[in-house]
């Protein structure tokens, strides 16, 4: 028995590791498909209100109407169609906002960590000042000032969350900058910036990717929060956050309006964070 378990352990571990990669990928691919094909696969217009069909329960309960799989909300709009259309906003925000956040934060972190001195003093002070603001309040304020809309949501996320990248990447860069391969690059005639990009960056890239995935999940949540407080997009666009906000009012007699977008949100955030870890393990030559 001991033999058997010894033999299967590595395989089981790599299987679990793969699962960590493939399950999130499967869910995110489903979301991408849903977002792209929304007009084709959504059974109903996500905005069409039919007051005769309000608060229909999902398919597994009594008193349903055929074709309304996940029921309808208080205005008679199809929940499934709204969840499907909601992926568009969720993915759009998470992709663009997280990438922008990542670019700004990682660049500043790399510069501060590698060049030190004056660069580090300025960037570190900036991070400290930034982090003194409570983030959600900060986001609400920003969007209130810039006006609602997709662009302001994205800008708000990037402006708030770049410090997460900057802090972590700065610390990792400082560790890498102590390594002899940096001196070795200088001995080999490399310029400082070349060393940063071609020697240090590959070593902090796994962390950047993991953070990026985490940030994508966070961006979805922030968008949902802003929708929840009615600051994201106008109410004629279906978003998970606005569904959750509306569903909250009817939670005692139509809990499904709240539950399904919440599940979608939860799975998406979880998938992104697991994908980050999974990717790190899968594509890191040193960890293999």
């Amino acid at each position: 028995m001991a033999d058997v378990s010894l033999q299967t352990t590595p395989r089981a571990r790599s299987g679990r590791r793969n699962l960590r990669l493939w399950l999130p990928l499967a869910w995110i691919s489903t979301l991408v498909l849903a977002a792209v094909l929304a007009p084709l696969i959504a059974p109903h217009d996500p905005l069409y209100q039919d007051l005769f069909l309000e608060r229909l329960p999902p398919f597994f309960m009594a008193g349903t109407e055929p074709g309304y799989w996940l029921g309808t909300d208080s205005l008679g709009r199809d929940v499934l169609s709204r969840v499907i259309y909601g992926t568009r906003i969720a993915l759009c925000v998470s992709l663009i906002a997280a990438t922008a956040t990542c670019l700004v934060g990682s660049t500043l972190g790399l510069l501060a960590g590698f060049f030190g001195g004056w660069w580090d003093r300025v960037i570190s002070r900036l991070i400290e000042i930034w982090m003194a603001f409570p983030p959600v309040l900060f986001a609400v304020l920003l969007v209130a000032v810039m006006g609602t809309g997709l662009t302001s949501v994205i800008v708000a996320i990037a402006l708030i969350d770049w410090t997460r990248f900057a802090r972590v990447i700065r610390a990792e860069t400082m560790v890498q900058a102590q390594m002899d391969y940096v001196d070795s690059a200088q001995i080999g005639g490399a310029r400082r910036l070349t060393t940063l990009v071609s020697e240090i960056l590959p070593n902090v890239l796994p962390s950047i990717v993991a953070l990026l995935m985490l940030e994508m999940g966070i961006a979805v949540i922030v968008e949902a929060i802003l929708s929840f407080v009615n600051l994201s997009l106008s109410s004629d666009v279906a978003t998970w956050g606005s569904m959750i906000a509306e569903g909250r009012n009817a939670i005692h007699f139509a809990w499904w309006v709240l539950l399904f977008p919440l599940i979608a949100l939860f799975l998406t955030v979880l998938s992104f964070s697991q994908l980050g870890e999974g990717l790190k393990q899968r594509f890191d030559p040193v960890l293999q």
């Binding site: 002899d180 001196d183 200088q186 001995i187 080999g188 030559p285």
Partner: peptide, 29 residues
């Protein structure tokens, strides 16, 4: 001038970039 002044380090684990293949490490300079 650096081309003429090379160095071998004490700890190759630290002086060889772990993310680069060996041939790339040698080819870079």
């Amino acid at each position: 001038l650096r081309r003429n002044l090379q160095m071998i380090f004490q700890d190759p684990m630290s002086s060889l970039n772990p993310r680069h293949k060996v041939w790339r490490i040698v080819a870079a300079p």
